[in-house]
Design a protein around this nucleic acid. Structure first.
Lengths: 152, 152
DNA sequence: CTTATTCTTGACTAAAATAGTCGGGAATAG
DNA sequence: CTATTCCCGACTATTTTAGTCAAGAATAAG
């Protein structure tokens, strides 16, 4: 998982959609105007969001995008995953050159770490953000979640 | 806060230092060999880590770098901050064009969100990683930490 | 003192990712 | 029909990341 400005753009746009989208779809031109993101760039992002089943689209006048589910059921992690896709798994894959198992060691470590952050963001929904809380109390990060975060 | 491969490089290198550095300093050439990171690139990273007071250096034969503190007192967030520095605060700063307070709204939202992740990584030390646990049980993320995560 | 080692610094380059542009389409409401 | 809006691919510019290179300063060891 990466945390970059693109993910921020996507979360921003989706939140705009959650706030401004009632029964009617919201056009990208509207989001572009409100959030000051280039229209063409939004088109690229929403192509990915649609592929990721996070939004549905309607063409023609009065058309635009809607959330595919309620905001309470769309999590920040999903949005970021949809637009940031591939976490590159650079080093020491097929190559057997991991001396003392160390190159792979730190690689796994980092994967676990980013997995924890992913879990964390998986508990924050658009609805939570609109309601003014980061996360539902019922979905709490437990110490158990950290068992896997270790050197292998 | 950004989470990129550069941060991963830095955490990897620091963990290598924590593991392989006893009483003697560890040379960048050694880390470069073990972790397969270009020496010159490591030099750039360690210049930042040194400015960030995370390592100390010793020149000459037998020289190298040491952790500035014990691994138990160096946190992942510090390492990433030291090498990834500036979080760009792009939109709607001095410009008063935040319609309905919304552009700033999502901006703050994202800042808060990355703040939470920062806090999270502030509780994981190199020592914790070496011991095979992500975080000390005593330093637990509480629900209270999420009070600030809201739309403003 | 000399030498090899290692950090220190700055400028430069290459490659990749990010952000944005452009032009042509296809669907559809009015 | 026509204007609106999504859709799609190719293209470009900018920034970031990763890596290179060269010169220099400190210092341990012979």
């Amino acid at each position: 998982m990466k945390l970059t400005t693109r993910g921020r753009y996507a979360v921003t746009a989706m939140l705009d959609l959650a706030i401004n989208g009632g029964s009617r779809p919201v056009s990208l031109a509207d989001i572009s105007g409100r959030q000051e993101i280039s229209l063409s760039y939004l088109e690229q992002l929403f192509a990915k969001l649609r592929r990721g089943q996070l939004v549905t689209s309607a063409r023609g006048p009065g058309g635009g995008y809607r959330l595919a589910r309620s905001g309470a059921e769309i999590y920040v992690a999903e949005i970021i995953d949809a637009v940031d896709e591939s976490v590159d798994v650079t080093n020491c894959q097929g190559k057997g050159n991991c001396q003392q198992g160390e190159t792979c060691l730190t690689h796994h470590l980092w994967e676990d770490l980013s997995g924890q952050i992913h879990d964390f963001l998986s508990h924050i929904s658009l609805g939570d953000l609109m309601d003014g809380r980061g996360r539902r109390p019922s979905q709490q990060m437990t110490d158990g979640a950290f068992q896997t975060l270790s050197i292998r």
